[in-house]
Simulated assay, not measured.
Amino acid sequence: MQNPPSQSSPGSQYSLLLFLLTLGALVWAGVLLFAGGFTTSIGAGMAFLDWPLSNGSLNPEGWTDNADQMAEHSHRLAGMIIGLLSITLAIAYNRIEKRIWVRRLAYFLLFLVVFQGLLGGLRVRLDHLNTGSDHNLTARSFAIAHAMGAQGVVLTLTSLAVLSAPQWSTSLAAGTGRFLRTFGIATLLLLAVAILIGAVMRHNGAALAIPTFPAASPDGSWIPSSDLFVVWVHFLHRTLGMLGGIGILIYALLSFSKKVWHPYATQFAIAAVLLTCLQIWLGWLILQTARNPHVATLHMLNGAVLLATLWSSILWSTRSRRQES
Rank of each mutant, 00 (worst) to 15 (best):
R321A: 13
L298T: 02
R125W: 13
R322Q: 14
G56H: 09
T39Y: 04
S8M: 07
I144M: 11
K259F: 00
A192S: 11
A192H: 06
N3K: 13
A194S: 14
R238E: 11
L240W: 00
N292W: 04
M46F: 05
M80C: 12
P166C: 03
G37N: 04
G37L: 01
I248E: 00
S141H: 12
K259T: 00
P214W: 07
D227Q: 11
T40E: 02
N302E: 06
A192T: 12
H262T: 06
A215K: 01
I250R: 07
R125T: 14
A209L: 03
T212R: 03
I210N: 09
G30I: 06
L287F: 10
A186F: 00
Y14T: 02
T297C: 02
T266V: 12
T156N: 09
I87G: 03
I270W: 06
T64W: 11
W261V: 08
A47N: 05
W261H: 10
F111G: 13
A35N: 08
V153H: 04
P5A: 11
A271M: 02
H234K: 08
Y264K: 13
L33T: 15
L21K: 08
G152W: 07
L157N: 01
P211S: 15
L49D: 05
R238W: 12
T131K: 07
H73F: 06
I91D: 09
A161T: 13
I144C: 09
